[in-house]
Design a binder for these strands. Structure first.
Lengths: 197, 197
DNA sequence: TCGTTGAGTCAACATACGTTGAGCGAAAGG
DNA sequence: CCTTTCGCTCAACGTATGTTGACTCAACGA
């Protein structure tokens, strides 16, 4: 029937991908501790031992699940440097990634955030990502307490994301992202400090 | 030596208290999953079995650890109704409890917040507490999107608390609470909506 | 004084988990 | 065609955890 026979390399890549997807989904849903290797394997339709053989340990699987694209899109980096570096531009970018369809944040980011309060390595990752973003913001704020303000801005973003994606507060359910961005904009601008331009 | 002999009732109350304190501390530090009954018992200088005998299960111990005073002070309730119910007053109260010496938030609240992303019951508690606060705020905001604005305000508070108390971001370390409150005030006022008074 | 209560301990059970090593069967390669 | 490689499974081990039941001993009440 539809059962194609695949070359080994391709087959391997696909199962590895299935495992990673399943891992990301489960880590994002229940966090590091409650996401068991067995459950991930079952979801990927694979033997638990294979997960170990491919990724070495649960810890490494988690790291792989959270890597790269995950981390920065979570907090609004998006690595494209086409937009300006003014504070307003950065704030707008943050609001944008928040709004890029809120229910569809990359699973890797959600996985990291879900575990950041209870899993040490996830906490370290989160601090790194936030720190990098704070650095960026700090450069374009130029105020007295520039760094502190930048930190608070990121802190606000974390709060909204937590309330919306992870706690799933009823009050934020189904609200169009643009509206949240609209309501949040003045608050972030206020933290940007007295306008310099 | 100083080894006083205590009446049974008193003795029981004290050990029960020691267990609860140890539980709160550990739950707050590492979250529900990583806080083991054995570790809690060791910290309270008691046999693990005694913890079960007194509290029934780890789940019930957690609930007891998180109860009452814990929950509302976490997000700034403080149950005293002496202050007004105007939006500004409420915002000020929120900022106040945030600033009531940031490193000394009640352990029960921290325990709840630490686990709210990974432990279902903690999540439910958090949603309840936040929901109640949002209700309060909504009444005194009177705007179009009053409820949504109120939710975002609480969301901001959660973010700051998470960043400060749980993630322990370097940028917020050692910053006097009054300064954070000062920087945050305009942002919260902005969410309060166009001033009605 | 003596039986009863209850605080507290000890040893053990059942379970779930991460992890390992041996092995099977099909693709790869000459 | 035969050997090797490798994706993948099976069964098991070791360990940590929540939880339980039998037990000890001092405080209590009559």
């Amino acid at each position: 029937m539809g059962e194609r026979v695949l070359p080994r390399a391709e087959r391997r890549r696909r199962t590895e991908g299935r495992i990673l997807d399943a891992a990301r989904a489960l880590f994002a849903e229940v966090g590091y501790e409650r996401a068991t290797i067995r459950a991930i394997a079952r979801s990927a339709e694979v033997d638990p031992a294979l997960v170990m053989q491919y990724f070495g340990s649960k810890q490494e699987l988690f790291q792989q699940s959270v890597r790269v694209t995950a981390v920065d899109t979570a907090t609004g980096t998006e690595t494209d440097a086409d937009t300006g570096t003014g504070a307003e531009d950065l704030v707008e970018r943050l609001l944008g990634t928040l709004g890029a369809k809120m229910g569809e944040m990359p699973q890797g980011s959600l996985a990291m955030m879900r575990s950041m309060l209870t899993h040490p390595e996830a906490a370290t990752s989160a601090r790194q990502v936030l720190g990098a973003q704070i650095d960026r913001l700090t450069e374009s704020i130029h105020g007295e307490d520039a760094r502190l303000r930048a930190a608070l801005i990121m802190t606000v973003m974390v709060g909204v994301t937590v309330g919306n994606q992870l706690l799933e507060l009823d009050e934020l359910r189904g609200v169009p992202p643009e509206e949240i961005a609209r309501l949040l904009r003045p608050s972030l601008r206020a933290l940007t400090g007295p306008d310099v331009s």
